[in-house]
């Protein structure tokens, strides 16, 4: 299995698709990289030579922010928002949608699984309390 920039192991797919398994490389970047390096984007990942793979790796590291570095950058950006106590930062802190979406319903991606609150039954509640 070919290996590009460390741990990423794309499979039997076309190289233009396999490259997208690298965090930070999407359809557009994948094609651009291959074009710049004169590699056929339709070629299967397994058919590439070691030289071609290392060239792709070098190019990615030179031109793009990828993998751990990109993840760190994202975290830093969020951390900055949290630190300056702005509205967006506060939304990140409480784990609610940041861009003004409704939260009355939906917003499950940010809020996580539903936490159902039991309907209060007057008599039972008072008995327990």
């Amino acid at each position: 299995m070919p290996r590009i920039v460390g741990v990423d192991i794309p499979a039997e797919k076309k190289i233009c698709v396999a490259l997208r398994y690298v965090y930070g490389v999407g359809p557009k970047n994948a094609l651009e990289v291959l074009k710049a390096l004169n590699i056929n984007p339709e070629a299967r990942a397994k058919s590439l030579t070691d030289d071609e793979l290392s060239r792709i790796g070098a190019y990615l590291e030179d031109h793009l922010v990828i993998e751990g570095q990109l993840r760190r950058q994202e975290q830093q950006n969020i951390g900055r928002l949290k630190e300056i106590r702005c509205y967006r930062g506060m939304r990140h802190r409480v784990g609610l949608p940041v861009r003004g979406q409704r939260t009355r319903t939906n917003a499950r991606t940010r809020k996580g699984p539903r936490k159902t609150v039991a309907v209060k039954k007057g008599v039972k509640e008072t008995a327990r309390g």
């Binding site: 900055r80 630190e83 300056i84 106590r85 702005c86 509205y87 967006r88 506060m90 409480v94 609150v117």
Partner: peptide, 24 residues
């Protein structure tokens, strides 16, 4: 105002709503 706040708007730092949590 600190350096990091440049580019944001003043209103972003003065929340208009208070959420104190749900009852229960």
């Amino acid at each position: 105002v600190t350096e990091d706040m440049v580019g944001h708007r003043l209103g972003e730092f003065a929340a208009t709503r208070t959420f104190r949590g749900h009852s229960g």
